[in-house]
Amino acid sequence: MTDVAYDVDDDTIAVVEDTDLPRRLKDEVYETLEAREGATVEEADELAKAVETRYLDTRVEPLDPVGTVSAQSIGEPGTQLTMNTFHYAGVAEIDVTQGLPRLIELVDARKTPDTPMMTVYLEDEYATEREKAHEVVWNIEATQILALGDVSTNVADMRVQISLNEDTLQERLITAEEVAGIIEDSLGVKTVQQGTQIEFGPEEPSYRDLLQLVEELRDITFKGIEEVSRVVIRREELETGTEEFVLYTEGSAFGDVLEIEGVDASRTTCNNIHEIHRNLGIEAAREAIIEETNNTLAEQGLDDVNVRHLMLVADMMTNRGEIESIGRHGISGSKESVLARAAFEVTVNHLLNAAIHGEVDELDGVTENVIVGKPIKLGTGDVDLRMGSTTSGSGQAD
């Protein structure tokens, strides 16, 4: 029986529960019947049988080579992908890698994408009021000294002089005193602050040390997250018809952003699958791989690739609890079969190491059986069919 209370009668529940549908699909049938107020038991039976038929038709046949089919289904349209960097979702200010390079990034499980970015959703008044949304922006976007004012050097007095902009300080919600304090903590110097003017210099007069202080000053992040160089704010319309502010970032620090007040952690995401894994777990990383590969194909007009092929790839990459790449440093390189490993890359190394260690290849997979000329153990290749003779002399299959 269903664990959730639906507004349907017992006869309808009995009809739906009598099917071979998994629990998720049964729940969807109940939700559909609830939406159709006054649906009869006959209509419920017809709907449940129709869903069951579609479900059984879409299941994979036993001994179907799903891995090979998935590789073909992703690889063939993958040759049509362009090799450019595209603007992300209409945000002209932010470039995000798409096409074939992005697909390679994902299956290689690169530690950091070429163009890391985050999509940050906001909650409550932060999503609807521009001023509140900008508070979140300044807590995310890295603020360097050149964004706050002008920096100059007084060689005669061996001093670095900073002239802060009052309007910028107010806009970014930071004070001159806080700026001076961060400089002292970061550079280990004594500052003199008067209003929006800040001065400091090296302990011993040295032109080299003076220039070094200026270089180090420019690297200090006074507010926001160091990894996020820019944030673009857009007002977007949701599927519900309401509008809200959404932030797009150049640079990624997923864990830090989730802790900022006003950020909706349930919807915020990034394009770095390893950051998602660290902060949300392996299941979330699996979903991210599926979503990112699906979006990459859809961007190129190839959204007719069945999502189950992408799900199989994501499952293979995450089923050990860690994100593994498809290549020789991940899944292909960790196969038990010597010939399968050798067929992928660095053939001589694999064969030499296998010979040194006396490895045995059981010839269980597709690749190794193709290499030695044996039928693969999938489809008709795994069926053992023999002809036997009876006393009457007629041929009969055992």
Rank of each mutant, 00 (worst) to 15 (best):
M1S: 11
M1L: 03
V16P: 05
E31L: 13
E31A: 15
L33N: 00
E37I: 06
E43K: 10
L47N: 04
K49L: 04
Y55S: 12
L56P: 02
T58C: 02
E61M: 12
V66G: 00
V69M: 10
V69Y: 14
S70T: 13
A71F: 09
S73C: 04
I74Y: 04
G75P: 06
E76A: 08
G78S: 07
G78D: 06
L81Q: 05
L81R: 08
V91Y: 11
A92W: 07
I94V: 15
L100M: 11
E105S: 01
T112Q: 05
P116K: 13
M118Y: 12
V120L: 06
L122A: 05
Y126F: 15
A127M: 10
T128I: 15
K132L: 10
K132E: 07
H134K: 13
H134I: 00
H134S: 05
T143H: 03
Q144S: 11
T153D: 02
N154W: 13
V160Q: 06
I162L: 13
S163I: 07
E166P: 11
L169G: 06
E171S: 07
R172C: 01
V179K: 07
G181Q: 08
D185R: 15
S186C: 03
G188M: 06
K190S: 02
T191W: 08
T191D: 06
Q194G: 02
Q197C: 00
F200T: 03
F200W: 09
E203W: 10
E204D: 01
D209L: 14
L211Q: 11
E215A: 12
E216N: 13
L217D: 03
D219E: 14
E226W: 07
S229Y: 12
R230C: 01
R230H: 12
R235T: 06
L238M: 10
L238I: 00
T240K: 03
E243W: 13
L247V: 12
Y248K: 12
T249D: 04
E250T: 12
G255L: 06
G255Y: 10
G262A: 05
T268Y: 14
T269M: 08
C270H: 04
I273M: 11
I276T: 00
H277K: 13
R278L: 13
L280M: 12
G281I: 13
A284Y: 15
A285D: 01
N295T: 07
N295G: 05
L297K: 03
L297D: 01
E299C: 02
D303N: 12
D303L: 05
D303V: 03
R308P: 01
V313I: 15
A314K: 11
M317T: 04
T318M: 05
G321W: 14
G330I: 14
K335F: 04
A340P: 08
F344H: 08
E345C: 05
E345R: 15
V346Y: 09
H350F: 09
L351H: 05
L351N: 03
A354V: 02
A355E: 07
A355I: 09
H357G: 07
E359N: 02
V360Y: 14
E362F: 15
E362W: 13
D364V: 11
G365E: 04
V366T: 12
T367G: 02
E368L: 13
V370M: 14
V372S: 06
V372K: 11
G373C: 07
G373I: 10
K374F: 11
I376K: 11
K377S: 04
T380A: 07
G381V: 05
D384K: 15
G388N: 06
S389I: 13
S392R: 07
D398V: 15
